[in-house]
C-alpha cells in the first residue's frame, strides 16, 4: 500500500483530497518527508499559504524531497519561483517560472475544461508561466512537471471519475 502525506498548513479544503485518496486505498500519513507521495493542496492566498508552510518547516521538507510531490491548484503555484499575487510573493522555487494574474475572460476562471482528452474542474485567478508546462487547457498551463514534482492547476479531487483516474495514476507512479 502506498503512503500519502497531505501537507497541512492552515485552514482550507484538504478534506476532499483526503477523501479522494482514501477512496483509492492510499494509507494517509503525516510524514511529508518520507511518504511515497506528498501532496501540496491549494489553500487561500499565496502569501498566507507560504507563511503557513514556512511556519511549519514544510518549505524545507518539500525542497529536500526526492520522491514525488503533487501540487494542486495553489499548490502548483507555490512550487514556482514567485507569484504576482498579494503584491509579489516568493515561492518554493522547486519549479522554474512564476504565477501571473489571469487577464482574459471571466476571473476567477471557474468550471470544467479540457486537458487533452479529459475534462477537469478549475477554480483559479492566477496561472503558471513556466518552461516546465507539459499540458495546457485553453492555452493556459494545466500541468507542470519538473524532476519529481507534478503540479496541476485543476482539482482532481473534485473532478469526478476523471479526477479519480488522474490521482490513481499519480499514486501508481509514486
Amino acid at each position: 500500500m502506498k503512503t500519502v502525506a497531505i501537507c497541512r498548513y492552515g485552514a482550507g479544503n484538504v478534506r476532499s483530497v483526503e477523501l479522494a485518496l482514501g477512496r483509492l486505498g492510499a494509507e494517509l500519513t503525516d510524514d511529508v518527508a518520507n511518504a511515497d507521495l506528498a501532496i501540496l493542496p491549494g489553500v487561500g492566498s499565496a502569501r498566507t499559504a507560504m507563511a503557513g508552510l514556512r511556519e511549519r518547516g514544510l518549505d524545507e521538507v518539500l525542497r529536500a524531497r526526492t520522491k514525488p510531490i503533487l501540487g494542486i491548484c495553489l499548490g502548483l503555484q507555490l512550487a514556482l519561483e514567485s507569484s504576482e499575487e498579494d503584491g509579489g510573493v516568493d515561492g518554493l522555487g522547486i519549479v522554474p517560472g512564476r504565477a501571473v494574474r489571469l487577464r482574459d475572460g471571466r476571473v476567477p476562471r471557474i468550471g470544467w475544461a479540457m486537458v487533452g482528452d479529459d475534462v477537469y474542474w478549475f477554480a483559479h485567478s492566477y496561472v503558471a508561466e513556466s518552461p516546465a508546462v507539459t499540458a495546457t487547457s485553453e492555452g493556459l498551463a494545466a500541468v507542470v512537471e519538473h524532476g519529481s514534482f507534478t503540479g496541476v492547476q485543476f482539482h482532481p479531487e473534485k473532478s469526478g471519475p476523471a479526477g479519480a483516474r488522474f490521482l490513481e495514476r499519480c499514486l501508481s507512479r509514486a
Partner: peptide
Amino acid sequence: AATLGSQA
C-alpha cells in the same frame, strides 16, 4: 476572500 481565496 482573504482567508478562503476569492474562488470560494
